[in-house]
Design a protein around this nucleic acid. Sequence first.
DNA 1: CTTGACCTTCCAGTAACTGGAAGCCCTATC
DNA 2: GATAGGGCTTCCAGTTACTGGAAGGTCAAG
Lengths: 133, 133
Amino acid sequence: MNIGAAAKRTGLPAKTIRYYEEIGLIRPARDPNGYRDFSETDVHKLAFLGRARSFDFSIEDCRSLLALYEDSTRASGDVKRIAEGHLERIDAKLAELHEMRRTLSSLVDSCAGDNRPDCPILRDLASDPAGHG
Amino acid sequence: MNIGAAAKRTGLPAKTIRYYEEIGLIRPARDPNGYRDFSETDVHKLAFLGRARSFDFSIEDCRSLLALYEDSTRASGDVKRIAEGHLERIDAKLAELHEMRRTLSSLVDSCAGDNRPDCPILRDLASDPAGHG
DNA sequence: CTTGACCTTCCAGTAACTGGAAGCCCTATC
DNA sequence: GATAGGGCTTCCAGTTACTGGAAGGTCAAG
């Protein structure tokens, strides 16, 4: 299967698939003409990577997960550890974004948004950093 | 004031301050020896940028906000529009992360995390993409 | 035999820094 | 006066995970 077909099958852009090969996540065979030739296994790996990336797992996490996926003697604890670590990062990001949203949203609400210069948003941004402790 | 002092005052790394000058966000004066010489105004601008960046405003948004901050004839509506746009991006990111967290967390919960190979997390990652809507 | 849709590689750019090398400036001490 | 230190300068490279684009080979259709 050519890269275009593999891209269609997995939903990944061809560019991304080439990139994944470049960094060693997959190793598709080559036709005599130099074209990549993707097996069903390659396509499954690509789909796996796409799904893992959709959870925002880093490429390095994806590499580890794929290795575990391919290792029939894996311990599910190793998979779980990676997922839990990632979940913690997601939770940290969520907390950060929630706090950001809370503050920014109240600033937006308090801004008249008219053609006068007075603006609580700018006042906050320009305020003494001690006030945000 | 030297860059080290400005860094201490604003909490921004010296590297970042140099970067902000490079991309034209600030224009500190120079001493005869070539050292940057930061005025109080420069420090205020840097603090403003630091606070805006802490809200995850992009550098280009920061540039616009700083320009508005410096323009006493600004319309607060212009500021508000930028903030609202950013708020929407934050909300979109929050929704995405929440959904991610929901799915990933239930997968983690269902994984035994022992030394056996069976793993619902890997099963999900490897599953038919049609199953994920 | 040419057109068009593929495919290939390689280089550059994205966002916002961060690390590090090579070297100048200034002060203090021996 | 030499030297050690800390701070300053510039410039180049690296980070993450791609993405865009140029130059050119391959292949099926007309």
